[in-house]
């Protein structure tokens, strides 16, 4: 289980990076970033998983006393929650940048979106 999650996460990360490094279209690059980010989140959650344990919510199935012995690690889950939102914010700002870049140069090709006025 954990291996699948980690491997899947890593795969997503690699695909994301591949997209960021090879795609010309900046929207695709941003998608690459998004994949990269998602892969990270999968790895995060996967790492906190413990075999045969349940979600860390105290209820009928998980009495407070047994919580530490029967729940998975709550920390990565808390962290991933934050990370997801951060990823969202970053992605949205990136997309706005893409929008503006497109509006100013009428292209989405990253090779054309650079400043050549350097002396």
């Amino acid at each position: 289980m954990i291996h699948i999650a980690l491997a899947g996460g890593a795969l997503l990360i690699f695909i994301g990076i591949w997209g960021m490094l090879t795609k010309k279209n900046i929207i695709r690059i941003i998608i690459g970033f998004s994949l990269f980010d998602t892969g990270l989140h999968v790895v995060l959650v996967g790492l906190g998983y413990l075999k045969n344990r349940t979600a860390p919510i105290v209820d009928a199935d998980l009495p407070a006393k047994a919580a530490s012995s029967q729940s998975v690690d709550p920390v990565p889950q808390a962290i991933v929650l934050t990370a997801i939102v951060i990823g969202l914010a970053v992605t949205s700002v990136l997309l706005v940048f893409a929008l503006k870049l497109y509006q100013s140069k009428n292209t989405l090709d990253i090779n054309k979106l650079r400043d050549n006025t350097n002396d």
Binding site: L50, I57, A67, S68, S69, S71, P74, V75, Q77
Partner: peptide
Amino acid sequence: REGLTKTASYYTEKGPAETRSANIV
């Protein structure tokens, strides 16, 4: 690891008691 980390153990053990939140996360 087989069990929780020190931090996680604290949260799961003391969390419900300290914060009275059922959802430890």
